[in-house]
């Protein structure tokens, strides 16, 4: 496997990061987890991530604002939005704006891994999901 996929995961629920970090590590991602969007945005300013996964609903800043920030700074970065529940209009709006995909809570680790794999494919650095089974 070549260079690992740089992923930033932002969700104000600590358990999300705690569980998804090992899950994504397994498919060859290097994951940095954040609970505070302000801190996450500061980190994004410092470093270009391949993929940013962010919750939509947070207190200080919402996922869309994080997305706008990423888009301005790193146009190549794929952004995946986690939503509380699926809302068609939100999905459409997200897609139009250039968000890579969105995923509705509750989801399984594999659901996110599938999306990340597609994002990796789109970035030109495909990953092998069969790795998980080992």
């Amino acid at each position: 496997m070549s260079k690992s996929l740089e992923v930033l995961l932002l969700d104000d629920e600590p358990i999300v990061g705690r569980r998804l970090k090992p899950a994504l590590d397994k498919i060859g991602c290097h994951v940095e987890i954040f609970e505070n969007p302000i801190e996450a945005v500061a980190r994004i300013d410092e470093k270009e991530f391949d993929i940013v996964v962010t919750d939509i609903r947070m207190e200080k800043m919402n996922g869309m604002q994080v997305f706008e920030h990423v888009k301005k700074k790193w146009p190549r970065t794929k952004v995946i939005i986690i939503t509380g529940y699926a809302k068609m209009e939100l999905a459409r709006e997200a897609m139009e704006k250039g968000i890579f995909d969105f995923i509705a809570k509750p989801f399984r680790p594999d659901d996110l891994r599938q999306i990340i794999a597609r994002a990796a494919q789109a970035l030109g650095t495909p990953i092998d999901l069969t790795l998980i089974k080992d």
């Binding site: 358990i15 999300v16 569980r19 090992p22 899950a23 609903r57 509380g84 809570k105 509750p106």
Partner: peptide
């Protein structure tokens, strides 16, 4: 409430899945 419930549900589901996986 539905929105709010999704958070603990998601946490439980992710945790259970990872527990099973690992």
């Amino acid at each position: 409430v539905a929105h709010e419930l999704n958070n603990p549900l998601n946490n439980t589901l992710l945790t259970a899945e990872m527990l099973k996986e690992d």
